[in-house]
Every structure is written in C-alpha cells, then in structure tokens.
C-alpha cells in the first residue's frame, strides 16, 4: 500500500491540471474589447438623467433629487429639485471648472481643481463622479484578471490602469456582466494603491437597446457611513439639449 502512493501521483497531477484547464475561461477576451463593449452599451452623445441620492450618514438618511444634462466629460449641467433647501441650486461643469449657483445667495461661485473631488451634498459621490460621463477605453488600459460571479451574474474582472491622464482614480478594478456589458461592481484606487471608493450595482434595467445600472451604492472608503444610494429615476440618451444650457447664463 505504501508503495502505491508514489505511483498514483502523476495521475493525480494530470487530473488536477485537466480540472484547472476546464475551470479556466475557454477564451479570455481582450480587456480593451470588454471595455469598448461597456462604453458602447452606455455611450451616447449626451444623457439626461433624473436621479435620487439617498445619503446615509451617522445621523440618519436624506434624499436629494436632481436632474442632470451630461455631454461626455467636458460639459454637464445639474439642477437640484428636492429637498426644499437645495431646490434651485444649479451646477455647471465645463472641463475642469465648475460653477455653482444658489438662489438664496444669488451668487455664482467657481469651484475648480481638486475641489471637484470633494463630496456632492455630503454624499459619497464627488462632483466628478456625478457630473462626468467617461469613456473608459479612452482613459484606461484594461487587462482581464479573471472571471467571477456577482450575485448570479458571471462577470469578467478587469484591472484598469490610467493611460497617464490626470484623473481622480488612477486604477480601477471592475466586474463586467459578461452578457449585458454593464459594470456590476467596482473598486477605485489612488495612484498609491489606496482604495478610495467602491460601487455596488443593486439593479440593472433594460432601457431601449441598453442595459442601465439604475440603483448603485457608492461608498467613499475614506469616510464613515453606510454609503450613498444613487437611483436613476429616468434616463434619456441622445436628447436634444440646447447649447445655451452649458453656459453660465443658464445658472440664474
């Protein structure tokens, strides 16, 4: 009996190797191709979104409703609809500058640079998170790191690293739904490797010919709290947005 064990080792190794080969993806796709499909699913000339942010803090939660007109990374306009204290506050983002208008003060204030990475309304989203529609393939190199399930959905796990542009999240790890090309989970990192933010998609809906994440929990890893739930109430792609909306005149 003692002599039979060494004789079995090659067979066990062969079975193990075969199992590993079978368990691995038959054909791991190119990372850039997966990223292109993600951009294709959500990409549009512009988007008009009505959303709710449920901000959960140490003293309870509150809901902020807003409507945003977003054109790529460069142009964005947001108007806050609720609660009454925030109603009428408007924000215009053009490239790396953001003007905010509050009716109570009747002032237009410029926010720029690293201030854009600050929290919006005390939420876990930054101004950049909320007001930019990024084409990931233009900003990141992608490598498929593996395959995992998120809930019952099989996903590609992609490691993204910045192509060198000065962006908020130097690295990202994303879990992309293999069938619907939508990101279901994400971890965003600083250049140092420090985890800055996580997102967790709780609901995906079909809108015309696209799959859209309609309920996402953002969690700022650098602060306490249970995170902010971002709920898309309505989303319109390629809408007719008048040019004057992306001017400072539209703030007042």
């Amino acid at each position: 009996m003692r002599h039979r064990i060494p004789l079995c080792l090659p067979a066990v190794a062969a079975i193990g190797l075969a199992a590993a080969v079978l368990a691995a993806p038959a054909q791991a796709p190119d990372g850039a191709a997966v990223l292109r499909r993600v951009d294709q699913n959500m990409g549009a000339d512009n988007k008009v979104t009505t959303s709710e942010m449920i901000i959960r803090g140490r003293r309870g939660s509150r809901t902020v409703t807003s409507k945003s007109w977003i054109q790529g990374r460069a142009k964005s306009f947001t108007e806050y609809l609720d609660p009454p204290r925030e109603r009428g506050t408007k924000m215009l983002k053009l490239e790396d500058q953001l003007w905010t208008y509050t009716p109570a003060s009747d002032r237009t204030i410029l926010i720029s640079g690293h201030m854009l990475r600050q929290s919006v309304m005390g939420s876990d989203l930054s101004y950049e998170d909320m007001m930019e529609d990024q084409r990931l393939v233009a900003l990141y190199d992608a490598v498929v790191a593996g395959e995992e399930r998120v809930g019952d959905r099989p996903c590609w796990v992609l490691d993204l690293s910045s192509r060198g542009a000065e962006i908020a999240y130097y690295k990202r790890k994303i879990w992309v739904d293999q069938e619907r090309d939508v990101i279901l989970r994400e971890a965003r990192f600083a250049k140092s490797g420090k985890l800055l933010k996580t997102t967790d998609v709780r609901n995906v809906e079909r809108m015309k010919d696209r799959w859209v994440s309609t309920r996402v929990v953002f969690k700022d890893a650098l602060k306490d709290g249970e995170g902010t739930e971002f709920i898309v109430k309505a989303m319109e792609f390629n809408a007719a947005i008048p040019d004057h909306l992306f001017t400072k005149a539209s703030l007042r």
């Binding site: 925030e86 009747d106 002032r107 005390g122």
Partner: peptide, 13 residues
Amino acid sequence: ISATMYGSLVVQN
C-alpha cells in the same frame, strides 16, 4: 462657502 451639518454646500452672503 461652507458645508451644512449634513454635508450640503452652503453659499451664504
């Protein structure tokens, strides 16, 4: 320019 107790933006003259 500051933040409210709940983290919202304050712009007050």
